[in-house]
């Protein structure tokens, strides 16, 4: 196919997901196909409401009832796959656990001895820049800090395949760039296969090998863009001409979809206005 790398770690083939029934059917994901190679970093970008989280849940095995297939190895995904780690879009820390116990949670489930799991949790907490907050509870952290706790909690078990749904949405631009560097570094070290869902253009270009651009409702693949920026790559890349070129190119595709999305929600709002 288009990609001549080693065998794909994940193949998304003609996936369709509809919600509701009768007249109320919403097609959230419409015949989406792409694959992700071993160790590759792929982003899925698209406007709000185009079905990104739905796709994320299908690939993560949380939404077993769908058409088409998502293959990891030679297994069709209909339940969570043990090699997959997920970072969710919504705030997902456990409010009853402090930072270090949140991050060590997956290791606790695996039965890793206490001192080792604290060491490993500590390493990832340090990486996301929360070393001095280990004993704090989520209610004592900001939204962005909590999101970093969830990222560390997923990274700690070093999943072979990493799925992230807008993990940086609650972060400011600077933290986002720096954390992006850390993620890239781990991803390269572990040769992790990564799928990032995002609506942030610079983030997608900064991190990805390829970007899947989605259309606004129904969510189809509009285009797949190869990002040929050198690796190892750091956030410095955002200053380069090539970077600007990619951003402009993808924005061109995205603008059309985004304005369709906006028009849609505006007309919905005015319809509501007319009724009320």
């Amino acid at each position: 196919m288009e990609d001549i790398r080693l065998q794909p770690a994940m193949v998304v083939d003609d996936v369709v997901k509809r919600f509701g029934r009768g007249d109320e059917i919403v097609t959230a994901v419409d015949h989406v196909s792409f694959n992700v190679a071993q160790g590759e970093f792929v982003s899925v970008i698209g406007p709000s409401g185009c079905g990104k989280s739905t796709l994320f849940n299908i690939i993560g095995g949380l939404l077993g009832d769908y058409e088409g297939s998502v293959m990891i190895g030679d297994e069709r995904i209909s339940a969570p796959h043990p090699a997959v780690g997920m970072v969710f879009q919504e705030e997902s820390t456990f409010p009853w656990r402090n930072v270090i116990d949140n991050v060590a949670f997956p290791l606790e489930l695996q039965g890793v001895a206490k001192s080792e799991r604290m060491d490993r949790a500590h390493h990832f907490i340090d990486m996301v820049g929360l070393a001095s907050f280990e004993k704090n509870f989520p209610s004592q952290l900001s939204g962005g800090m909590r999101q970093r706790v969830s990222i560390a909690r997923t990274l700690v078990s070093q999943p072979k395949i990493l799925l992230m749904d807008e993990p940086f949405a609650a972060l400011d631009e600077q933290t986002r760039l720096l954390l992006g560097d850390k993620i890239t570094q781990i991803q390269q070290e572990l040769n992790q296969t990564t799928l990032l869902i995002t609506h942030n253009l610079t983030e997608a270009v900064q991190l990805s090998d390829r970007i899947v651009v989605m259309t606004y409702r129904p969510g189809k693949v509009k285009r797949i863009v190869d990002i040929n920026l050198k690796r190892p790559r750091t956030s410095d890349v955002v200053g380069s001409d090539a970077f600007g070129h990619y951003v402009a190119e993808i924005w061109n595709d995205l603008r059309e979809e985004a304005s369709r999305g906006m028009a849609d929600s505006e007309s919905a709002a005015s319809r509501r206005g007319a009724h009320g």
């Binding site: 849940n57 949380l62 969570p80 043990p82 997920m86 969710f88 997956p106 489930l109």
Partner: peptide, 8 residues
């Protein structure tokens, strides 16, 4: 969902 993704 966090629990499910961790195969609890």
């Amino acid at each position: 969902n966090v629990g499910r993704s961790l195969n609890m």
